[in-house]
Design a binder for these strands. Sequence first.
DNA 1: TCAACACATCGACAACCGTCAATATGAATG
DNA 2: CATTCATATTGACGGTTGTCGATGTGTTGA
Lengths: 122, 122
Amino acid sequence: MSKSAAGSQLTLTPVETAACCSPLLREPLSLERAEQVVPLLKALADPVRLRLVSIVAASEGGEACVCDLNDSFDLSQPTISHHLKVLHEAGILDRTKRGVWVYYAVRREVLADIAALIGGSA
Amino acid sequence: MSKSAAGSQLTLTPVETAACCSPLLREPLSLERAEQVVPLLKALADPVRLRLVSIVAASEGGEACVCDLNDSFDLSQPTISHHLKVLHEAGILDRTKRGVWVYYAVRREVLADIAALIGGSA
DNA sequence: TCAACACATCGACAACCGTCAATATGAATG
DNA sequence: CATTCATATTGACGGTTGTCGATGTGTTGA
């Protein structure tokens, strides 16, 4: 397994997806499970990163290059690069290099998994 | 409005709830909106707090007293108290005092709102 | 080969966070 | 009252995080 992108794989069992509400609210979360989910929540729990995810997702073709993202913030290029790295290593953003540019795209299943865990469908 | 419990009120408009996917993924999140949501995500982005929420929600009657919660962790009583305070001030946990005991309960709408925002229904 | 460009990494710094021991508060009970 | 019990607050400490400027890396085009 490559160094990053350890996210997703929250492994919802059929039982968990069927019942009244989200796994989080139905039964005590194990320590291991909590430690799987927390890095994803940490990655999202920053205004810059949350907006980065949003901007990337809303971009044409579902991806955006770093140069565009830099212009969306009043922050230095290394800072944006850092936040993108955090999101990528959490498994939330995919990274593709084309020529000189690097494009990021949102892994929507991962966000859906988190949402399913904390909010549940019911 | 009492000092804490500023959470929820993510004010999903009808338009936002109807379309293809979550607000987060459909259009760029405004700075103000991000700053509304981030405190909630920050509150959840800790293994102890995430488990606290889970344990409280899964408890009989949907609430749990601090004394029981203390026993669920290998942490000092002040530390648990601190985490409960964070969750309460974020608006995720309700607080009720009955006699000598304090009971916390999960505000499920708040978690549902967060889930709807980040994961969307689609 | 060289210069320009896009992006990442490094090193440093201040601010924030999780934890604890000690202590305070406040309710029940004798 | 005095005591005991449940919970909160305080103050301190080390570790983490967000930010920057400086620099490195790799690609493109002259």
